[in-house]
Design a protein around this nucleic acid. Structure first.
Lengths: 217, 217
DNA sequence: GTCTATACTTGGATAGAC
DNA sequence: GTCTATCCAAGTATAGAC
């Protein structure tokens, strides 16, 4: 499955931020997906942003879609690290919402969420791309599910919440909010929602013991 | 604002389904956005599906994006009619969820939801397209808001729900669920959620009188 | 590793025959 | 109104100089 076009690159044996051309192309791909969308993410457009020649896209990645998938990988890995650290301290739904709004705003501003959206939406234009994208999206849903599970661990809500479906809905909401925020340029609309959601959850939690009585009867 | 390329067309003075080439192109555009995405929706690809010549795209619509916007208009209008009829009989949240799942499944199967998603995601590739798409999405949020309002009219939930933000979230969830459904080809995951949402709403409604007491204190 | 040059393909758009 | 023919721009990808 390893493309022959893959050159013997240095690939960062230190742990600092990568500065090579390969990384510049990945960064430029993220930026281009954010700024011009999947349809505008050509080898030329990306290379222009990376400040290098168009041919290097093919030298390093073999094809444009493979570069875009590498960008998706980079975003997934980077955000997974960030999410894991943020969620580690969370033990209840209210805290989870609080960190979610921070992290989500970062994803919006940096264009990370756009990368997901554009790759999913663009997947149908290229045979086989859908499966590749799906494989890379799956960890996000898994992460959301475990975050929900652990946040509800001590909550009576836990028994009545299907964590898998909630996680699926969270990912969907994440994608949808990003789309709308990117369309009208208003990040506030998206993040304001979290505040009301927090109210709702805490209100629900306060009442849930009585609710449990009813549900378990 | 009227494009000069607009021919003097018959434009259906009867009320049956349109059968002309213009309508065939709109239908083909919807289908192409569904099947191949925004990036794959070229004049040639659409014309092939419509069974006519590529030049007719420009004869009727002036440009490809204008055809795609016409497709978005067609979907919006058609679904608005359908939604209005469906929601007319709804007076409570549970009923609203019940009709929502039916209508949403139609949108998924017919590719109507994909048209929204692809146009929003593709908007960033063409200057000015974002504003045009946003104008055409707004009615959906307005509709969702009025549906939520009327469904909650007799409910004690009404006072504590910010209908505008809920509507925004519903549209976002709609878009996100469509993306995921289209990616993994599993409509069930999306619609199963509605069942649990219905449970949650009814449970919350049953308890809301007591909740109102707390909130209003 | 990076560039130039180039071959090839696809797509947007127009002109003009019918 | 529909088609053929065509032009031009942009994109993917490769070869080869440096």
């Amino acid at each position: 499955m390893a493309k022959p076009g893959q050159p013997s690159r240095p690939r960062s044996d230190h742990s600092g931020p990568e500065t090579g051309t390969r990384q510049a192309l990945v960064d430029a791909a993220i930026e281009t997906l954010h700024e011009e969308g999947f349809a505008g993410a050509s080898a030329r457009a990306i290379a222009r942003r990376a400040g290098c020649n168009q041919a290097l896209v093919f030298y390093y990645f073999g094809s444009v879609v493979d570069l875009l998938l590498a960008a998706l990988d980079a975003v997934s890995q980077a955000r997974f690290v960030r999410y894991s650290a943020a969620v580690e301290v969370v033990t209840n739904p209210a805290d989870l919402l609080a960190v979610a709004v921070d992290v989500f705003r970062e994803d919006l501003d940096a264009g990370y969420a756009t990368v997901l959206v554009e790759m999913i939406a663009g997947a149908s234009s290229t045979p086989g791309l859908g499966a590749e994208v799906a494989r890379r999206i799956a960890p996000w849903a898994d992460f959301a599910e475990s975050a929900v599970s652990s946040a509800l661990a001590d909550s009576p809500l836990r028994a009545m919440v299907p964590t898998g479906e909630v996680a699926h809905a969270i990912v969907a909401l994440y994608l949808g909010l990003e789309m709308l925020a990117n369309l009208d340029g208003d990040r506030g609309r998206a993040t304001a929602l979290f505040g009301h959601l927090a109210l709702l959850v805490s209100a629900f939690e306060a009442l849930s013991p009585r609710l449990m009585q009813r549900e378990n009867r």
